[in-house]
Design a protein around this nucleic acid. Structure first.
Length: 738
RNA sequence: GGGGCUGUAGCUCAGUCUGGUUAGAGUGCCGGUCUGUCACACCGGAGGUCGCGGGUUCAAAUCCCGUCAGCCCCGCCA
């Protein structure tokens, strides 16, 4: 049921309100995103693309709709969305689709700047997910208190004729002169209160006429069926005819609205954070945080079932082996000394294994003083899991069970477990990254044999320099224009390669920089061995793998998105295994631990570790979901002599080793169980489940990109007396906050 | 530390490229009309240090420099 033809550039489209028309443009610009624009008298977003539900203003149409009780707005949206996005994936531009729907739902939007759609993690599927969350359902817990008989969203049609008391915020008020309607809101939903002279006395009518949005009011009245039910509301069949009304709390005029007009963008992120309590009242934020709660609960339930024990570890600790900058806390008692806030409970969880707690977990706050991103906050949450007397497979099973439970409870879906496994080296070779998005079917291929020695200098030079010619066959890529290809070339350069070369095969033959050296023989190989058909494009990146892999990864993801080759309907879970134990620090040339210094080598031979540490793999693994790293872990090294060699290989002096990790090494002297575990980036997982582009939308009180709390105005300066007590003097600007 | 985008009414935005009447729209707010609305509708009104500072110019929301804030990216960070 596709409702309208897919608009093409130049089409004239009418806006929903019929107030004008515009012309569709398709402009490749703004960071390479393909976007559609509609030029016209109204509507920054191209509304007419989808027949998304919205109330029709003309009354007759509205009544017509009501008389035939159909599916709710949400389920209609879901249906239309599915048919548009999934039956015609090559025709519709997913970012656009996501943009329209997201805007229409007025949910946590990807508003970064108007020139850019943030759609990396915002897929139609994710939106569908969002629409079918359990939190959309009627709240099952009784919300009865001394002040109310039920939550607003809990009042049922079968209660008609009964008197109920409810309390909540005034969401919207409609004043028809003699009649008033108030949508009352609490966490359980909206409930329509109606006021009229037949059932409300004069004092009540006088009060309701004065109510402001977000006042808190308590109302009592009779539940009654509505003359015209509203199928878009959970409580749409009924209303409460209010006979008594009490204003419990008065709201000032609002700096940002809780009610979100459907045509309007969300207030700026800055205002949303400054007035976070109002932002949190919006149903989308309520839903996100409640989904987070469901996920957290699922974690506790699954791990508890599997015999794990939740144990807390200290927040005031010492600096840990992770590489990030620490948040420091001055000690008043020991002036000049500092606690560090934990970057993760890594060392403690290993100590707990030594302490005899076989299976431990914790939903732990972790803190890192580094620069931020959309998916990074200075404080974030990890699900930290460790188990003893295990090998890798045992850890995998525990993690898979846990994620299956999260998806089951949070999204109502079953996961395909066990997850697929892919060794790190293979991932790098086939996808150019250690977190491949397997929803994209394309793989990187090695063209070195086929394309060297045929007279193309760049390819020959790469091979002679110890590199390879690798490439990506892009089915249907011949449709890409020269300017688009130039854009991909730039992407490859940004990713560290010298650039991307290309070869197109069209009905007219081959084109592209190496085309003149593609003879019949080479053409045959490209077709037979690499499957390059008419209408396809091949990108080549020549050089060392270390340079070409990131570039090919970038090309693969960007081109797949532009050409609609990402299976938006699918979910791709996998384990990446057999990470290298070390990689080489480009500055010092020294080996640095790829994960952390306590990972078990796949080959725990001290000789090899000394001779050729970079060749040793680790028993370390990641969980990758749709190209996003969800979790990371390893089997730890419980062999003290091997551990010492591992640390020495990094160039640490024995005294340093002793100072930083002495307490762990000491624990290892009294009988260490073989152990291992993993840690999950909880914020990212929940953001993915909720379909949010930023983890800020699944955190109640997040910090800005400059690590500031706009609500509580943190950080702040402190008095000289306090500093003095801590033995601290501040150099530079003391700051002007309070 | 570096790059990019943004900053105009309480909010969302147009106007900036190409300097030139009194800076506009929607929404919210205030007043009025309205007995079945649910984005209620209709009529009227108030509301602006164009982020801030400096410069260019007869003239700056518009051009230039600096600065602050928010967002995105690189560096950094598992």
């Amino acid at each position: 049921m596709l409702h309208r033809p897919v608009p093409r550039a130049g089409d004239v489209v009418r806006f929903d309100r019929g107030e004008g028309e515009g012309r569709v443009q398709r402009s490749p610009e703004a960071g390479g995103e393909v976007r559609h624009l509609v030029e016209g008298t109204r509507a920054p977003l191209p509304d007419p693309f989808l027949d998304l539900p919205r109330p029709v203003r003309r009354r007759s149409a509205r009544l017509e709709e009501r008389r035939q009780p159909g599916p709710s707005a949400v389920s209609r949206l879901r249906e239309q969305f599915r048919s548009c996005a999934f039956r015609h994936p090559p025709l519709l531009d997913p970012p656009l689709l996501a943009g329209v729907a997201e805007n229409r739902l007025s949910s946590a939007a990807f508003r970064t700047s108007r020139d850019r759609f943030r759609t990396d993690s915002l897929t139609p599927r994710a939106l569908l997910t969002k629409l079918s969350l359990p939190t959309e359902r009627r709240e099952p817990a009784s919300l009865e208190t001394a002040l109310r008989d039920a939550g607003c969203g809990q009042v049922e049609a079968s209660w008609s004729g009964r008197e109920v008391r409810v309390i909540g915020w005034v969401h919207r008020r409609r004043d028809l002169g003699g009649l008033f309607f108030v949508d009352l809101r609490d966490r359980s939903g909206l409930l329509q209160l109606s006021f009229g002279p037949e059932w409300s006395d004069a004092a009540v009518l006088e009060l309701v006429a004065e109510l402001n949005p977000e006042d808190v009011v308590q109302a009592a009245g009779i539940v009654a069926p509505r003359p015209e039910p509203n199928p878009d509301m959970i409580t749409g069949e009924i209303e409460v005819r209010v006979s008594s009304l009490r204003r419990v709390s008065v709201s000032d005029p609002l700096p940002i609205l809780v009610y979100q007009p459907p045509d309007e963008e969300l207030p700026s992120e800055e205002l949303r954070l400054r007035h976070r309590i109002l932002d949190l009242r919006r149903p989308e934020m309520q839903r996100n945080l409640r989904l987070r709660h469901v996920a957290t609960n699922a974690v506790r339930a699954s791990l508890t079932e599997q015999g794990f024990v939740e144990i807390e570890t200290p927040l005031l600790t010492r600096q840990t082996p992770e590489g990030a900058r620490d948040y420091l806390v001055p000690s008043r008692v020991h002036q000049g000394q500092f606690f560090a806030l934990p970057q993760s409970p890594q060392l403690y969880k290993q100590l707990l294994m030594c302490g005899g707690f076989d299976r431990y977990f914790q939903i732990a706050k972790c803190l890192r003083d580094e620069d931020l991103r959309a998916d990074r906050q200075p404080e974030f949450t990890q699900i930290d899991v460790e188990m003893a007397f295990v090998e890798q497979d045992d850890v995998f099973r525990a993690a898979e069970k846990m994620f299956a439970r999260i998806w089951r409870d949070g999204l109502g879906r079953d996961l395909p477990v066990p997850f697929r496994r892919l060794p790190h080296a293979e991932a790098m070779a086939r996808y150019g990254t250690d977190k491949p998005d397997l929803r994209i079917p394309w793989e990187i291929r090695d063209f070195t044999d086929a394309l060297t020695g045929i007279g193309f200098g760049i390819f020959d030079g790469a091979a002679q320099g110890g590199g390879r010619v690798r490439g990506l066959v892009v089915p249907g890529g011949a449709a890409l224009s020269r300017s688009r290809i130039a854009h991909y070339d730039k992407l490859a350069q940004e990713a560290g390669a010298r650039g991307a070369l290309w070869l197109k095969r069209t009905a007219d033959g081959w084109s592209g920089p190496p085309a003149k050296v593609v003879g019949e023989e080479v053409a045959d190989v490209l077709e037979a061995e690499f499957g390059v058909g008419e209408g396809d494009l091949v990108f080549f990146v020549a050089g060392l793998d270390a340079e070409s892999s990131p570039a090919l990864d970038r090309l693969r993801r960007a081109a797949a998105r532009e050409l609609g080759a990402v299976d938006e309907d699918g979910e791709a879970w996998l384990w990446i295994t057999e990470f290298p134990l070390y990689h080489r620090d480009p500055d010092t040339g020294l080996p640095v631990p790829a994960q952390h210094a306590f990972t078990m080598p796949a080959d725990p031979d001290p000789e090899r570790l000394r001779e050729d540490p970079l060749s040793v793999n680790a028993v370390a693994y990641d969980i990758v979901y749709n190209g996003i790293e969800f979790a990371s872990g390893s089997i730890r090294c419980h062999l003290p002599e091997v551990q010492r060699v591992i640390l020495e290989a990094t160039g640490l002096a024995p005294e340093e080793v002793e100072a930083r990790f002495g307490f762990l090494l000491e624990a290892f002297r009294y009988g260490v169980p073989p152990h291992g575990g993993f840690a999950v980036g909880m914020d990212r997982v929940v953001a993915e489940m909720a379909g949010c582009p930023s983890i800020r939308d699944v955190i109640a009180f997040p910090k800005t990109a400059a690590a500031r709390g706009l609500l509580e105005r943190s950080p702040s300066s402190v008095t000289p007396a306090e500093l003095d007590e801590l033995g601290i003097s501040v150099t530079g600007e003391a700051g002007n906050g309070t």
